[in-house]
Each structure stands twice: as C-alpha cells, then as structure tokens.
Design a protein around this nucleic acid. Sequence first.
DNA 1: TCAATAAAGGACATTTTTGTCCGAATAATA
DNA 2: TATTATTCGGACAAAAATGTCCTTTATTGA
Lengths: 145, 145
Amino acid sequence: MMFSKACEYGIRAAVYIALQSLDNRRVSVNEIAEEIDSPVAFTAKILQQLTRNNIVHSVKGPTGGFEIDREAMDTVKLSKIVKAIDGDKIYVGCGLGLKECNADRPCPLHDKFVDIRTDLRTMLQSTSLYELATGLEVGLTYLKR
Amino acid sequence: MMFSKACEYGIRAAVYIALQSLDNRRVSVNEIAEEIDSPVAFTAKILQQLTRNNIVHSVKGPTGGFEIDREAMDTVKLSKIVKAIDGDKIYVGCGLGLKECNADRPCPLHDKFVDIRTDLRTMLQSTSLYELATGLEVGLTYLKR
DNA sequence: TCAATAAAGGACATTTTTGTCCGAATAATA
DNA sequence: TATTATTCGGACAAAAATGTCCTTTATTGA
C-alpha cells in the first residue's frame, strides 16, 4: 500500500528479531520466515540488506542467526529500514510523479501532499523497533495473518 | 511514491482534460501525452479505463478526443480515479502487508497508520478535478517536469 | 580435523507493472 | 463514397519486483 513487499517483510523481520533479542534469542532465517509468514529465500535476501546497513546483526554457523542489540532497538527507527530497502522515494518523490515538484513549481497535489507526507516521515522517524517489539511482546499486536 | 505510474498518469491526464474542457476544447491522446509528459500508448490505455469508469468522456473520429463536462469536474473526486486504476488497496491494505489487520488484531504499525490513511482518504475524497484544473489555469501549479 | 549448521552471494525463474504496436471500429468532411 | 483522424482493443515486449535454488564461506562442537 505504501511500502514495497520487500520493505514490508523487512520491517516485520526486524520487529520479530527485536522481539526475540529481548529474550536473548538469536533467530534463523527459517524461523523468521515462519513466524512472519514470508517466503524464506526472499526474506534471506532482505535480511542481507538489513545486515549490510547495520540494522540487524548476523552470526554465521551453528547457533548463528540474527539479533539486534538492546541499544540498536532504540536507535534504529523505521525510517532507517525503509530507507535501506525502498530508498528515499517516500520522502522525496512527487505524488504525481513529476521530476521537479516543489513549493516554487508545485504539481496540483503538492500542497495537499505536504502534510500527509510530513506526518508519515515524522511517524517513521520517531518509531523505534523497541516500541514495536514491546507491543508484540505484550500481545497487543501481531505479525502474522 | 503512493500511486502506481498508471495512476499518476491517469490523474495528470484527467486534470489536463478538465483544464482544456474549461475552454471547451476536446483533446487527443497525443496532445495529452505531450502536455503531461507521459508515454502515448500507455496513456491511451489508461484513458480507456477512465472512459469506462465514466470519469472522462471520449468521442471517436476526426474532431474527436477526450473531454469532461463541467458538472463531472465537480463530482469526480480524485478518489474515483485512484479507485478506477489502483483499486482500493490504498484504503484497505495493511501497511505491513498482513491479510488480516484491524483494530482487533492490529499489526504493530496499525494505529500509527490509521491517522495518515484517514487523512489521505479524506484528501482524495474531497479534491475535485475542478479544483485542480483551476489551480493549473491560474498558473499556480504545473503538470510537467 | 570433520561433520553439521547457518548466513552470504550469485544465477536464475516467475509475476507484475510498464510500455509498444497494430488492426478494427467510428465518425467527420471533402 | 473515399479519405482521414480519432478512440478501442488485443497481442506483444521490456523492465522491475518478487521469489527460488544452489554453491561458498564461516563457525560450532564432537
């Protein structure tokens, strides 16, 4: 609706990893894909991106898997994940697809989009993985279905 | 960023047609594509959808083309165009791609999305083609570049 | 040291979106 | 009536997004 599939999986995966890391559990791609109901191999690709961008931490070999340290859960905001996967088109692009569209030379929808986009950006920049993971932990929210 | 390319072109085309219809000018696909800077043949396809959905009116043959009558400019809101081309996923879908996601069983981002989505829907449902066309007419907004 | 387990990475496959091309249908006008 | 300009519709093509498979690399623990 707003993010690519890859980004949706990425966010769900990161939140699940955060949740498990709160219990000091490292999780494998297989477990993640199972728990967030996503295609395994594709999810693995996305996790690679998250790892390269230092959003999650990965460990190879037996007992390996993905984890997020407690500090990163606070500092990593959704905006970082979205940017790593979908780039900054959500923030930058014109709603009607014009290459140049700004207050000086706005498309017909420019002003109407400004507020919505600002709200979206603010939300993404202020929402941490920790916040999302704890909602899950308490059973208030879900990652499947 | 938010709409498909097809939808972006569709909105731009509709606004341009509305603008020209204010001058009682019927416009061809070629002129439209030229003026909104979009691929001609693809734009033609999208115009077919708009026609089938009674968003614009088309006339075949010489002197033919597309037009929107003055009344429709007021009654046709952006929401109708978006729905005709992109369906209702903007309104309905879950931000994280869950099949089932609602107040009872929300995804971790559900509440945070509610407001943004409501604002978006309200904006689309209240913005008419007339409003957008007149902004263009006065030279306040642009459809190209 | 060796077997097993997990992520990393590259090549490939499928699906969806975006985009093109061309013939048919329609209507104006000379 | 013939010509011409236009939309309509179907088939096709290209590009991007989504998704799979398999080999390599790292690491653990027996």
